[in-house]
Design a protein around this nucleic acid. Structure first.
Lengths: 225, 225
DNA sequence: ATCAAAGTATGACAAATATCATATTTTAAA
DNA sequence: TTTAAAATATGATATTTGTCATACTTTGAT
């Protein structure tokens, strides 16, 4: 069992507020999992008995719409806790979490987290600030969804992906989403997404090499979005 | 100065967790305001030095989009606190609050609220649960915005308005939004909103008498949404 | 290595929605 | 009360986006 104290993601997480003792306690009760790309961490509606801390890899947090499409609400990356909202509201999961890459996550039981939550004011404030940040982002996304065109949203998402997850050595966006997932992020039909990517490829704003996407003209993208 | 202890909205609010002593303290530091219909309580970007507790009336919480349209994120009603998120994140307001009816609101300075927040665990949990509820709703709205048609969203909003704010004696929806505001809630152009209302009026799903809207066939509305 | 399945791509068309123009009605200010 | 401004309504049209069909390409399992 690895020690939370030495975990690299600790510093990027709400967990950085925990003291040594609490970190030891957490290390003793946590369970580590390896999740393969495409596998689910938890599903919408499921009862979560704790939170998951992302140690490595990226996942999507999505919600199924009435028409059967998967809308991606946000992406989760190392350091983030999944299931915080469900824990506080004492409700089942509102979103599904699915690995976009091979992942390592640690499960920490609810009891423990709630204990830290009550003991440690810095920790609870960190968690709350995260949730408040999510709320702000969600509100902003809502405005985008309602008022921007699909093209604008696509440009926005491409910039977001590069800025948040970085580039490979060859300059392509590190995170690779399928066209369907990309469509799920911007809230459109897969074909529309593909079509717009093709168009941006033709106009040299981006370059497409199979699954790889290169942002060639960021200023133009900014302008579009 | 009226006493918070005797305020009717107290029981519907996070504030119900405060003890007598805290309620007295709150009554002593709060400021009451009367806000006329159409007036602003605070604006997006403004620094809030506390929270507003809605005593009476309904307001819209909206955000300006790039194209100059006002997207309504949610409606606030008696008992709700405005500005909680900004207080916790220690950021300026993300949304503007505007009265849809004449309102009475009480302003409570940040210091006081934060003090209660730290002293009283039930109160802080109530506030957090509210914010978590807002987040869940925002995520659900995002899916709707992305995946439902304007007509579906309009039907959904009409049902929501009646169920959340009730009916007048004549059976019309109590809350009266302008067509522009209604369009702002569902995220569409005012003309499109008017057109769909006319259509629903023709098909007898709703009835329109000037600003008054009657839901004539709720089942049909449910089916549409 | 082969093959079926999944993912990507593109065209043709239909449906939904926005935009612009303009008429009518309602509201509020002088 | 009158009158200008704002809100509501509707038509005509353009644009955006979704859907269906089909072809091509990549991927992964046997």
């Amino acid at each position: 069992m690895s020690k939370c104290e030495q975990c690299i993601v600790r510093q990027f997480s709400s967990i950085k507020a925990l003291n040594k003792e609490q970190l030891v306690q957490m290390a003793n009760c946590k369970t580590s999992y390896t999740i393969k790309k495409g596998e689910s961490i938890f599903e919408e509606g499921e009862t979560l008995n704790g939170v998951y801390c992302i140690k490595d890899g990226v996942c999507k947090l999505s919600k199924l719409s009435q028409n059967g499409k998967d809308q991606i609400i946000k992406l989760g990356k190392p350091g983030e806790l999944l299931g915080q909202r469900s824990m506080i509201s004492d409700e089942s999961a509102n979103l599904s979490a699915t690995a976009l890459e091979d992942m390592e996550v640690c499960f920490v039981p609810k009891n423990e987290i709630l204990q830290f939550f009550n003991q440690n004011n810095d920790f609870s404030m960190n968690v709350m600030r995260t949730i408040c940040g999510d709320l702000k982002e969600a509100d902003e996304h809502m405005v985008d969804m309602a008022q921007k065109t699909v093209k604008q949203r696509l440009a926005e998402v491409l910039i977001y992906l590069e800025e948040s997850f970085g580039k490979n050595e060859d300059g392509s966006i590190r995170i690779q989403l399928s066209r369907e997932e990309l469509a799920g992020m911007i809230g459109t039909a897969t074909e529309s997404c593909i079509r717009l990517l093709s168009e941006m490829n033709k106009t040299k704003v981006i370059e497409i090499q199979g699954k790889k996407i290169f942002l060639k003209d960021k200023k133009a993208l900014q302008k579009i979005s």
